[in-house]
Design a protein around this nucleic acid. Sequence first.
DNA 1: TCAAATTATTGATCGAAGTCAAAGACGGTT
DNA 2: AACCGTCTTTGACTTCGATCAATAATTTGA
Lengths: 246, 246
Amino acid sequence: MRVGGHSERRVKVSLLEGSRRQTCSDCVVRGFAICAALDKTELWELANLSRHIHCEPGTTVFAQATMATSFFSVLEGVLRLYKLLPDGRRQIIGFALPGDFVGLAGSPQYEFSADAIGAVVLCQFSRASFARFAENRPRFLRRINELAGRELSRAQEHMVLLGRRSAEEKVASFLIGWRDRLAEIGSAGGVLPLPMGRLDIADYLGLTIETVSRTFTKLERDGIIRILTGGISLLDAARAEALSAA
Amino acid sequence: MRVGGHSERRVKVSLLEGSRRQTCSDCVVRGFAICAALDKTELWELANLSRHIHCEPGTTVFAQATMATSFFSVLEGVLRLYKLLPDGRRQIIGFALPGDFVGLAGSPQYEFSADAIGAVVLCQFSRASFARFAENRPRFLRRINELAGRELSRAQEHMVLLGRRSAEEKVASFLIGWRDRLAEIGSAGGVLPLPMGRLDIADYLGLTIETVSRTFTKLERDGIIRILTGGISLLDAARAEALSAA
DNA sequence: TCAAATTATTGATCGAAGTCAAAGACGGTT
DNA sequence: AACCGTCTTTGACTTCGATCAATAATTTGA
C-alpha cells in the first residue's frame, strides 16, 4: 500500500491524443516543426518527399549503428532516444515529442536508437531526397541549424544534470523540464502525464529504477508531487523548481 | 613519493606550439575549421569580419548568461567550456581545440562559459556580421550544420559517459577520446599532453579531483599509463581502449 | 472477473565515489 | 638554492545511490 495515506485508486492520465491529417499545410506540428520555415510551394514539394508512418508501442524506429537512410519528424506521441553500451547499460539521451526532428547524424549510421513509447505517428523522409531538398534553401538550412542548436543546448543542460546533480535534483529537474516541454507544444497544465516508465526515467537520469521510485515517494511524502498512474500532479511547483535549479 | 617505483623526475610535456599567420588563406586551421567550406573570394570577405585575439592562461573568453556578441574559432591552444550551478558546482561540457567553432547558441546569451587553458589564439567574429555573411551561403550553412552535428554527437557520447560509466571507465574514455581528438588535428603520438589540471578533468567527468587522482594512480599501477608532469604516456593503449569501450 | 505478467515500491545491505585532512611535488620568484 | 603558493597524491572515514530480495500495484488477456 502507498505510504502517506494515498491508497485510493489512482487517476489515469493520458497524453497527446490529437487528430491525424494527411496534408502538410494543416499538419498538427506545422507551427513548430522543421517545416515552419517553408512557404506554400516548398511545403508542397517537401510533402511529396514524406510519408506518414504509424508505430505500435515499443516499436524500434531505428537502431544505433544501422544505416541512417531516413530522417523523421514526430507528429504524435513520444520516442525515447538512447545509446547502449556493449554490456547492455543504457543511457536515454532524450525524449522526442511532436515537432522534434530526429535522425540527423554526422555519420552515415544512426548514432543512437529510437523507439516508440505508446503509439507514435512520424513523418518520414529519405535522407538523400531530404538533403537534396535542403541543399540550396538557406532559410531551411537556417531552420535546421536552429533546431540543432536547441538540441545541443538541451544536451549541455543534461550533461550538468548527469554529472553534477543529486538524485533528488535529477528527478525534480526531469519533472520540471518535462512540464516545460509539454507546455511548449501546448499541453494542458495541472496534471503531468508521464508516458515513459520508471526504468526509462532512471536511464534518462543516470540512476536505477529503485532510486527513481524512492525519490518519487520522497517527493510525494514532502508534499511536492502526487503520484498518479501514468503521471504525477505537481502540488508545489515552486519547491520542485527550487530543487531543480540549485 | 610516487608508488610503483616511478619516482624519477617527470618529463615535461607541452602542446600545440604552432606558428601564427595573419591571413586566412594560410591559417593554421584552414583545412578543418569552419572556413574549410569557403572559396578564395569568400575567405577574403570573411577575413575582413574577423580579428585575431590572444588570451593569457586562465582568461575567461566569455561567460555564461552574458550577451553573446561574438563567435570564435580556435586557432591555437585549448579552451575549457563549462556550466556553473548557482552553488558553484561546475560541469565542463567540453574542451575546444584548434579548428573548433565556439559560441553558437540558440539564445542571445552565451549558454556556457569558456576560458583559456594555457595561452590561446582565437579568431573572433561579431555575431551579427557573421550571421549576415552566412545568411545566403548554403555551402557555409551546411558546413555549420556539419560542425554542429559533430558537436551534438560528442555531447551524446558524453552523456553516456556521465550517466553510465564507472570512474575507471570515465578516466580511460577521457584519455582515449583526448588522444583521438589530438590525432584528428595532427598531433604526434607516444606521449599524451594534458594541458588541463586534475580539477578540470574531474569536472569534465563528473568526479572529484581525488577520485581522478586515485584512478590515474591505479591505471599507472596496472601498467596502462605512465604519469608525467603535464601529461601521460599510454603504455597499453589496447587495455585503455577496452576499459573505455565497455 | 480472475490469473498471469509486468511494473512499481519498499526494505536491508553493500560498495564506489565523496569528504575531510594531511603530506608531497612542482613552478615561479628572488 | 630556498621559499611560497598551487596542484596532486594519499589516507581514513562517510555517504549516497546501487544491489539484492521481497511485496504490492497495475495491466493484459482469456
